[in-house]
Structure formats: structure tokens, C-alpha cells
Design a binder for these strands. Structure first.
Lengths: 220, 220
DNA sequence: ATCTAAGCTGACCGGTCGGTCGGTCAGCTT
DNA sequence: AAGCTGACCGACCGACCGGTCAGCTTAGAT
């Protein structure tokens, strides 16, 4: 499994330590790794800078610790979506809305994850980011495969490509939320539930009108 | 040489100046604003650090200049997609594939744009990023509205939401490309054309099998 | 009452940061 | 040949960076 960066540390949280992680998560997500100094984090957490080094070996180690906290959060969400009794369309709807809700709930650490996926170096943290995303992705592919096997959805679609679109729709919403809210046409920028419902609807039914049968039904 | 044309445009490019912008674009996209020092840029461009300050007032000004270059590139793409004679489905296909190709072609500056949309402060650069994205977005909404007016696509879908999904699909592909290539199920990670075609297909036709008519066709 | 160890701190280090300065030089004008 | 200008440079600045360290405080076990 994904025991790549399993920090075998199971000590007491320590009041100061949690404050450090919490503050660091906020600052890192706002300004990025290089945009935050250890002094900033110390001030935000209400501790001394040296104290951070008492709990974490380096700035990089603190960063990875923050990302690890996010990984644990995501893993918890995935457990809830294991029931196979629910019909496909409902499972898809639940996944999309739960996924988006999770992103928005942990927006700080998720923004960190996105930022990490954009950077070129820093293998360790990137591997962690890949790990979190990958696990989420595999889960969705399984749901889609079940749907195909049951004959509910078209079998000529690549389930991995479908999963990419579903996940991407949520990720993009989160990422572009502020920009979207500036565009007059967009009325769903502050209504994630409506966005999730609407996007799932489009994915399931398709954009094309059922009446129209012109040069649209190309299937390669 | 091209002294006569110098008056038409703003200023002469200057060999060193273009080298600075080019190098800065690469470095900024790789490591972010704070991850790059002016010395790095100077070395990459083969000029002195003081020379950069001869051409640009500050590091921030250089950053904005790099983003502005990207804005100009995007504007050029949008001009090509103005023909209204093409039927809707074909226009949609063209937009998606052209949009994705443009992202990949100018991956460096586009990565900058994404990074900027993730940052919290820095109003000036963010406004620019919003501007570029917004313009692209409005164009796509118009295409979709035309499709609705012509009755080719369903009128009960929010065109702005559809546009978000189409653009988001491409953005997410770019962003997650490296992660996707690590996932065994994903076979399209290095085939953007196939991804664009496949995603458009799903958007147009929908995931659901036309035969299946169980509890799926919910329309809110 | 004493020991111990973790939690925590202010002062400090070498190095790098963005930015400035005085000055050189090639080329153009007059 | 004098005058001017934009491109360019090496040396330098104060501020701030990540990280270290000796020592203080506190809480629990003995």
C-alpha cells in the first residue's frame, strides 16, 4: 500500500505542536513554501521559532507533516463511500458532492496539494501529493467500472477518462471559484452543491438534445 | 534593422530583455515567484543582475511582464475561433482541442497563471490572470449559447456551468498530467488529442447508456 | 526534596535576498 | 570631436533567511 512516507511517530499532539501545524497549513496554502518564513509560522502559532525546530527537524519536514495531515483527512472520506449496494447513478452523485464538499472543507490543505502538483522539484512532497490524489482516483474508477459491468453506463467510454473528468470538475471549481464569482454569467460560484448536482447531471445525460440528430453523434 | 517598426510597437525588444523574460518565464513556472532569485534569472539570461533592474523596475514588475506576455499569446488563439458558420458540435470540438493544445504549447506561462490563481495576495498579477481566464471563458459561453439558441443542445443546462466543465477538463488534464501518467489505468496521459476527443464525446453524449432508463434521469 | 526530561526561549550564525550605486562602453547625433 | 543615451556591469547594502545552541521553566516520577 502507500507506506511510502508513513511517519511512524505516534506521540502526544502537544498543544504547541498542533498550533504550529495549523498555522503552517494556513500560511503555506496562502503564500506557498518559499513565501513563508519560519518566523511567520512561529508568530502565527504563538511560539518561538526555535520551538518549531524542537518539534520538526526542518522547514521541509514541517511542510511534509502538514501534507500528511491532509492525506489522513482524505483517507477518512474514502472509507465512507464503500457501500456497493447503492445504484450507480446515486453513487456517482454522492461521490461528486462528497468529494467537492471535502475539498472545500479542507480548502487550506487542498490548496497545498494543488500547489505541490505544480512544482517541478521536491520529490518527497510530490510523491505524497500523488499518493493522495491517486488513491482517490482509483476509488472512483472502481465505481465507474461497476457501472459499466452493470450495463448502466456506456461501455465504449474509458472509465479512467470519465474519472478524470469527474475529479477535474471539482478540482477546477475549487481552483477557479474566486475568478468565477467575478464573471456575471456565473451564478453557481457560491453554491457548490448546485454545481456538483449540475455537473453530474451533464456528465450523466450529456449536453446534446435528444431530439437533435444531425452531425453530432460521431463515435470515432 | 527594424528601427522603422520600433515606433509602432511600444519599445525595442532588446536582445537582453527578451532573454530575461524568457528565462524568467521558465524559472518562475518551475519554482514560483519566491523560489527564484534575481541572480538566478540573471544567470539564466546571461546578463548581470543590475541589468534586469535597468529594464524592469522590480522583481514584481518583471513577473507581471512575464504574465502579460502570456495574455498576448492567449488573445491570439481566441481570434481564430470566431467563425460562426461552423455547426455547434464541431465548434465545441475545435474549441476544446485548440484550448488544450494552446495550454500545452505554452505550458510554462500557463503554469504561472495557475500558480497565480492559487495565491492569496498580489492583487495586480491576480487581476491579470483573472483577465486572461475570464476572456477565454466568455468566448466559450457564447458558443454554448449559440448552440442552445439553435436547439442543438439542451436548454435546461446552465451554459456557464457547461463552459466551466469544458475549460476545467483541459486545465485539470494539464495540471494532473504527470500524476495521471503514474496511474496504470490511465492510457491517455501522453495523448492530449485523444483526451480532448474523449472528453468532448462524454460531454456531448453523456455517460448513461441510452437503453438504461432506471432511476437515473433525474432532472432536479 | 530531588532528579530528569520534555517544552520552550532569546541571542546568535553564515548566507542569501531584493535592490542600489558609480561607472564603462558602443553607437548615434550635432 | 563633443555631447548624449541606453545597455550593461561589479561591488556593495541592510534586511531577512533557515538553522543552532546554551540555558530557563515546568511537570511528573522517584
Amino acid at each position: 500500500m502507500s507506506d511510502t512516507l508513513a511517519t511512524a511517530r505516534e506521540r502526544a499532539p502537544s498543544r504547541g505542536e498542533t498550533a504550529i501545524i495549523k498555522g503552517a497549513a494556513r500560511l503555506f496554502s496562502e503564500r506557498g513554501f518559499d513565501g513563508v518564513s519560519m518566523r511567520d509560522i512561529a508568530d502565527a502559532a504563538g511560539v518561538s521559532k526555535a520551538n518549531i525546530y524542537h518539534h520538526f527537524a526542518s522547514k521541509q519536514a514541517l511542510y511534509v507533516a502538514v501534507l500528511s495531515a491532509r492525506a489522513a483527512e482524505t483517507r477518512a472520506l474514502l472509507e465512507e463511500l464503500s457501500e456497493r449496494e447503492v445504484p450507480f447513478a446515486e453513487r456517482a452523485r454522492r461521490f461528486v458532492s462528497a468529494h467537492l464538499a471535502s475539498i472545500l472543507e479542507h480548502s487550506q490543505t487542498f490548496r497545498l496539494l494543488l500547489r505541490e502538483s505544480l512544482s517541478e522539484d521536491d520529490r518527497q512532497a510530490r510523491a505524497l501529493a500523488d499518493d493522495v490524489v491517486g488513491e482517490n482516483f482509483q476509488r472512483l474508477v472502481t465505481i465507474l467500472r461497476d457501472g459499466q459491468r452493470a450495463g448502466v453506463i456506456r461501455s465504449d467510454f474509458d472509465p479512467a477518462l470519465c474519472a478524470t473528468l469527474l475529479v477535474g470538475a471539482n478540482v477546477f471549481f475549487f481552483q477557479a471559484q474566486r475568478i468565477l464569482s467575478h464573471i456575471p454569467e456565473v451564478t453557481f460560484a457560491n453554491d457548490p452543491a448546485r454545481y456538483a448536482a449540475g455537473s453530474t447531471d451533464i456528465f450523466l445525460r450529456g449536453l446534446l438534445s435528444p431530439v437533435a440528430t444531425d452531425s453530432t453523434g460521431r463515435s470515432k
